[in-house]
């Protein structure tokens, strides 16, 4: 490779950029991986989803001036990608029915109820599932979710409402709002 043709200024800028990007990746990868895992439900899918999102962030690094918005950018890419048609098709193959999938694990903190709920979350349509993950794992408000996903707050509210209704319908009686006092 000829050094004489290399634009040294561009290379310096790229080195800075790579250092910044690397630092961000190092700091945020575990947390974003967890979100990816919740969106996909498996490690291979999570890794693929996160790698794709990081790659798009890498391509857009210069254009994102607000470094505080980076996590939101990555989450938006992951959600949109996970919702895309081919991934949904792939998901349908993975979850072809509404039957509760095998959890393979028992939640030792609540007699398996957490594991059961996780299984039900995996049966939700991708958009509802994304709202559930952002709302109840990332603890974002409906307005923040709306802004992050580029949809209206009303859509967020309705997706969340449908998701909770579906979870109630599929969950054991112990999660029935009339029995648990959860009337929201």
């Amino acid at each position: 490779m000829s050094a004489t043709l290399v634009d040294m200024g561009s290379q310096d800028r790229r080195t800075d950029k790579d250092a910044d990007f690397s630092a961000y990746m190092s700091a945020r990868q575990p947390a974003l991986y967890r979100t990816a895992y919740l969106l996909t439900g498996d490690h291979a899918g999570a890794e693929d989803l996160l790698q794709n999102a990081f790659a798009k962030l890498y391509l857009s690094w210069d254009r994102i001036r607000d470094r505080g918005a980076l996590d939101g950018y990555v989450r938006r890419v992951m959600v949109n990608e996970n919702n895309s048609l081919w991934r949904r098709a792939w998901k349908r193959r993975e979850h072809s029915t509404d039957t509760m999938p095998e959890t393979g694990t028992t939640d030792t903190y609540d007699d398996g109820m957490g594991g059961a709920l996780w299984s039900f979350v995996q049966t939700l349509p991708p958009k509802q599932r994304a709202v559930v993950v952002l709302r109840y794992y990332e603890d974002l408000s409906e307005a923040e979710i709306a802004e992050e996903l580029g949809i209206s707050p009303g859509t967020v509210k309705s997706q969340a409402s449908r998701a909770l209704a579906a979870l109630r319908a599929r969950a054991p009686r112990s999660l029935n709002p009339h029995e648990t006092g959860d009337a929201r």
Binding site: D107, Y109, D110, M113, G114, G115, L117, W118, V121, V132, Y136, Y137, D139, L164, L167, R168, A171, L175, P177, T180, D182, R184
Partner: peptide, 8 residues
Amino acid sequence: LEDQVHDA
């Protein structure tokens, strides 16, 4: 239910 989902 929402708290249980959060915890799960």
